[in-house]
Amino acid sequence: MNMTMTMKTSRTGITLWEIALFTVFLAVAGGASVFFFFLNSDDMKRAQQKFAWVQNINDMLDEVSNEIANSAQFEHPFNGSSRECFFRTAADTGALVPSVLEEGFVFADGSLTYVARNAAATTGMKRLGRFANPLVTNCRDGKFTRVSPGRLEISFKADSPDGSVTSREFIRVIQLRNQ
């Protein structure tokens, strides 16, 4: 009796839940292949380029914020807003460099530039960290606003190089740590 029961429960056929599992896997594989085609598409490449552009500007703004936040003395704008900002930096020894030597950032000709000025002239620097001058191109309405004695706000609108994004606004708030 026991023997016949064992014989009867031999494995034959395919069960319902196996069919369901197979269908799920098929759906996942089909969905994945469609998704990978989509990842390769031009739309996705454009979106990635746009994101890379935005991220590059934000990385650059990180550097600029770092430079301004750690300036030894922030000179201009003292209040209100301006298209340029100037500050005195500390030398590597910790001493303050003479007040005629200042560094700054300027919005001019649709770009943001890192400059140095002395009593005679204002000259463009070569680069800020890994970012070559001009730091941003195709930007408008750029200004530095001294919101409060210890706080500066940088804001500007920029267009992406391929023209797919227009008037993307970038705003940074900086605490002037040494004021």
Binding site: L39, M44, A47, Q48, K50, F51, V54, Q55, N58, S65, A69, S148, G150, R151, F170, I171, R172, V173, I174, Q175, L176
Partner: peptide, 24 residues
């Protein structure tokens, strides 16, 4: 990531701005 990285970036910048405002 491919869809929402821009939102994350904006949120992280807003977070930093909020922190700098709080510190000042």
């Amino acid at each position: 990531p491919v869809f929402e990285s821009d939102a994350h970036l904006r949120a992280s910048v807003a977070l930093e701005n909020l922190m700098e405002g709080a510190l000042s």
